[in-house]
Write a protein that binds this DNA or RNA. Structure first.
Lengths: 136, 136
DNA sequence: TTAGTTGCAAAAGGTTTGCCGTTTT
DNA sequence: AAAACGGCAAACCTTTTGCAACTAA
């Protein structure tokens, strides 16, 4: 993607301003405010090219559809290594900047650990005081 | 599912003897040795009922198809809480029995951590000495 | 002008389901 | 024989792709 179309600008803007990883559906809905006729196919195509040039990164939680957030070199320093927190009430995903460090000792003997992923689950700041049953 | 059909026995046996979480495709292939005409639909239906009665558990790694392994109460003690290791060469997934414990402090202030998941990536015992390029 | 983009609809890949014939009890 | 189960094909859901129309440069 080399042209700065309205679709491109709307999609990139939404991800950049999102503040947290967004689902492709969310990106479509938010970017549609700026470009009403926007199609999901275009969202996916822009996501693909933004991923390829490193502008955004894909965030995968187990058993869930992929989310996208602004890429590492845009505002990170340590190769972008960090983790995620998902709120069990509002289901939003948030970045967790810290990392406990080496987890090599967890693996069985003879296994060589090269990397790890950590996902925390619980209640985000907004939902921590709220009742379980309500939504919004 | 309340009847002990050949399909049921073959599928359960494969998961129980697998030693590691298996993909539904792998379950189909392995169980087909015992029941050649076995269909994927049956594998999924048995998986569903085995999950419901707790005989097996679902293992989800980010961005990958679900795997299944023998259920917690079958041979665990601590509610089955444990983690996983995936080999980047052979792509098999292995259980990691240990857990670093509380990761509450990683989350942003105001967030309430209830649970966590950890996935390690690297080389399994068999693949640790092997060359990156080869497969098998 | 014209090559890159978009929208639409169809295709793909994995999982689920409806239907109906088969098997277990 | 009745109820449960299995196989096949169609349905689903999310993501990808072919193609003709559109648009940025």
């Amino acid at each position: 993607m080399e042209r700065k179309t309205r679709q491109y600008q709307a999609i990139f803007e939404v991800i950049a301003q999102g503040g947290r990883p967004l689902l492709s559906q969310e990106i479509l809905e938010l970017a549609s405010k700026a470009v009403p006729q926007l199609s999901l196919a275009t969202v996916y195509r822009q996501i693909k090219s933004l991923l390829e040039d490193g502008s955004i990164r894909q965030v995968q939680l187990p058993g869930q559809n992929p989310r996208y957030e602004i890429g590492s070199h845009e505002h990170d320093h340590d190769h972008g290594h960090h983790h995620y927190f998902q709120c069990r009430r509002c289901e939003k995903v948030f970045d967790v900047p810290t990392c406990p460090g080496n987890l090599d000792k967890l693996a069985p003997a003879g296994f060589m650990v090269e990397d790890h992923e950590i996902i925390l689950y619980g209640r985000c700041g907004e939902c921590a005081g709220e009742n379980v049953m309500r939504k919004h």
